[in-house]
Simulated assay, not measured.
Amino acid sequence: MVAEVSEQTRSRPVSILVVDDDAMVLQVMAAGLRQSGYAVTTTTSPLDGLRILRESVCDLVISDAYMPEMDGLTLAETANGIFPELPIVMLTGFGTVDLMREGLRRGASDFITKPFRMRDIPIVVERNLERKRLERDRLSERSGRILFQAITSLLTAVDAKEHYTAQHSRRVANISLQIGAALQQPEAEMRVIELAAWMHDVGKIGTPDAILRKPGGLTDDEWQVMREHAAKGGEIIAQIEDLRYLSSIIRHHHERYDGTGYPDRLRGDAIPLPSRIIAAADAFETITSDRGYRSSRPVSVAIDELKKHSGTQFDPIVVETLVRLVESGRID
C-alpha cells in the first residue's frame, strides 16, 4: 500500500485531515485513505478543522472548496498562515482556472476535481508529501554558502538592534543540536533544527529598539509588541524560498505545550518538534546568560525552572532530555 511503502522510515503513519460538509464524501475519502495506510481525521466544520490543526499533528489537509460555515479558500489561507509548509489540497466540483489561481494564491498546493476516483487520491497525497520532503531536504543539499550568507545577513541586522542576540542564537543552536542528537533525529532534521535555532529571533528586526534595549522590565503593551517577533520571524523566512520550510518552526518557538502560548495557541504535538526543542534551549540559555536587566543565574536554577514548567510550557520529553544532557556534563 502506498503509505506503507513510501513512509516506512517514519515512526508514525502520515496524518491527513479531511474537511467537507458532505458526510458521504468524508466517509468515502476516509475509508479509502485508511485502506492505503494513512491516519485520517475528518470533520464537516472548517472551524473545527482549524481547532484540530492547533491541537494535533497533521501532515496534509484535504478540504472542500465550498462550504457554508467557511469556504475552503479561507480555510486554506488561515491554515497556511499558521503552517506555511503544510500541503493543502482543495476538493471541488468546479475546477476552473480562476478558482485554481485563487486557491494557489491563498495557500492551496493542489486540487482534486469531483467526481474523483479513490485510487487516484493516494497519488495526489504522495505528490504533495514528496514536494514537502524535497523542500526540507534542500536545506541539506543546497549550497551551504548561499544559506549561510542569508542567515548571516539576517542575524547581522538583528544583532545591530540587540547586541546579545547573535551569541544567544549560536548557543541556542548548539544546545538544540545536542537535544536533537539525543532524540535521534535524522540528519536532514538536524540541519533544520540548526538553521531554525540560529534564526529563531530574526523577527526582532521589526521590534522597536526602545523595547529591545530597555534596561528594566517591560510593560504589558511592550510585551505585546515583543511577542509579535515570533510571527514576524516566520513571515520573513517564508519569503525566502530555500528557507521556507523553517518558517513554521520559527513562528511557533514560543508556543506552550498546554496550548496557552503564542502566536497560534498550538498544543502538544501540533507544535513542530524543532520548535519544542528550541523553546527549551532558548529558556535554558536565557536563564544562564547575562542580560541587560540582570546577571546570569546558575544552571541549577535553569533546570528547576524547566522541570517546574514541564508539561505546561515545555515538552516533557524535551525537558527530560535536556536535563539528562546537563547532568552528564554535555551541556553547561
Rank of each mutant, 00 (worst) to 15 (best):
A238Y: 00
K307V: 15
A196H: 00
S310Q: 11
V202G: 09
R330L: 14
V301A: 07
E85V: 13
D264H: 10
T96G: 07
E7K: 12
E194L: 09
P46N: 10
S247Q: 05
G95R: 02
I278L: 01
E126K: 13
M118T: 11
W223G: 05
Y38M: 03
A173L: 00
F116T: 04
A157S: 08
L195I: 10
R106V: 08
A230C: 07
S295N: 05
S45C: 06
G103H: 10
I62Q: 02
G81R: 05
E222P: 00
Q178I: 08
E130Y: 07
N174P: 11
A173N: 04
D71I: 09
D220T: 04
G72Q: 07
T9A: 14
F94P: 05
T156G: 14
A270R: 06
R101W: 08
T152W: 03
I52F: 10
I193C: 01
T78S: 12
G233N: 04
S289V: 09
L60I: 12
G81D: 09
Y257W: 15
A230M: 00
R267D: 07
Q167I: 13
S36A: 15
P208K: 02
A39C: 08
R105E: 15
F116M: 11
P263C: 06
S56Q: 15
D137F: 11
E77D: 13
G95S: 08
Y293I: 00
R297W: 03
V61R: 01
A173T: 10
L47R: 10
D22P: 04
A230H: 02
E241W: 06
R265P: 02
D64L: 04
E241F: 08
V319E: 07
L134M: 11
V125G: 01
Y38E: 02
G144T: 02
K114H: 08
E85I: 12
D98Q: 14
D264S: 12
L86W: 00
Q35L: 12
R127V: 06
T288G: 01
D64S: 03
L183H: 01
V124T: 14
P263K: 02
D282M: 01
A108P: 09
H252A: 10
M100W: 05
G206Y: 01
L104D: 03
A79R: 00
R117I: 14
E194D: 11
V40W: 05
E222D: 04
R291M: 05
R131G: 14
G72H: 08
L60C: 07
I121V: 14
W198R: 11
T42Y: 03
A173C: 14
P208A: 05
A182S: 13
F94W: 13
L99D: 10
D315T: 05
S176M: 04
I52Q: 10
G217S: 02
R106S: 12
T92N: 09
T152R: 02
M100L: 10
A166H: 08
V301Q: 13
R34K: 15
P215Y: 00
A23C: 08
Y262V: 11
V192P: 04
E141P: 07
L155Q: 08
T152E: 10
S300T: 15
R251V: 01
R54N: 05
K204Y: 03
H163C: 09
H253D: 07
V225S: 01
P316N: 10
Q8M: 15
E255M: 02
R227S: 10
E241K: 13
P215Q: 01
A160N: 07
I249S: 00
A65S: 14
S11P: 05
